[in-house]
């Protein structure tokens, strides 16, 4: 019971910190929106072309936006000594890691999900995308947070950690990207994307089962 309370306190604290420093969360979202706005300028505003590449571009940018925010996931706690106390807490570290991932997703991934319908309109995607795209992102972005958490923990304290983490983690994002884009395109081009959505859900459950343990192991090494 007290372990649940400890996890709840981690979520509440991280959300409060994100709320008091909105810059860090908003930076990723602003990057997401601005980078997307550049695409019609870069490839030309041909509707057929934008619809064809829309889902893929939005997903790739969501990947980058999350990567940008994942860098600091454990860095602040590592630098100020809070991580040591989390390692020493009676609650299992795996649970605290899951709590940190939840807070991170609520302050970054969720914002991307909420913003995605607007971006879908920006790319001229048809009406169906207005619910498929947020649904696919809602299933896929938590997986990205969980996988990214392993990378962030592994490279904690190393110089150039952010760049290395990107190289380490991006290949692991590929399945989410494939099924995420597949789901949206499937619905847009009349092929149906239910299977891909289910696959995204399965990937999330898989990451949820593995990532907290892998992250906790990496953080313990880091405590040394």
């Amino acid at each position: 019971m007290s372990a649940i309370r400890a996890a709840g306190a981690v979520v509440a604290r991280d959300l409060r910190l994100a709320f008091r420093r909105p810059g860090e969360s908003l930076l990723a979202v602003a990057f997401f929106a601005l980078a997307l706005a550049l695409f019609p300028l870069g490839v030309g505003p041909t509707p057929a072309l934008l619809v064809r590449i829309g889902a893929g571009v939005i997903w790739v940018l969501a990947l980058f936006a999350l990567l940008l925010s994942l860098e600091r996931l454990y860095q602040a706690d590592f630098e100020d000594g809070t991580l040591e106390l989390m390692l020493l807490a009676p609650a299992p570290l795996e649970l605290l890691v899951a709590a940190k991932c939840l807070a991170h997703w609520l302050s970054s991934g969720l914002l991307l999900v909420l913003m995605s319908p607007v971006l879908a309109l920006l790319m001229g995607l048809p009406g169906e995308a207005l619910w498929v795209l947020p649904a696919a992102l809602a299933l896929g972005t938590p997986t990205l947070t969980l996988i990214g958490s392993i990378g962030a923990a592994l490279l904690l304290g190393s110089r150039r950690g952010a760049t290395l983490a990107a190289l380490l983690v991006l290949p692991l994002f590929i399945p989410v990207l494939i099924f995420g884009v597949g789901a949206v395109d499937g619905y847009l081009f009349g092929l149906g994307g239910r299977g891909q959505l289910l696959m995204l859900g399965a990937l999330f459950l898989f990451a949820l089962a593995i990532a907290p343990f892998a992250t906790a192991a990496a953080l313990r090494l880091c405590g040394e």
Binding site: A3, A6, V10, R13, R16, R20, L85, M86, A89, A91
Partner: peptide, 16 residues
């Protein structure tokens, strides 16, 4: 970015 009391409340929860 947290107040002194908020910091301690967090640690209290962490200690159970």
């Amino acid at each position: 970015d947290l107040t002194a009391a908020e910091n301690l409340a967090f640690h209290a929860a962490l200690y159970g």
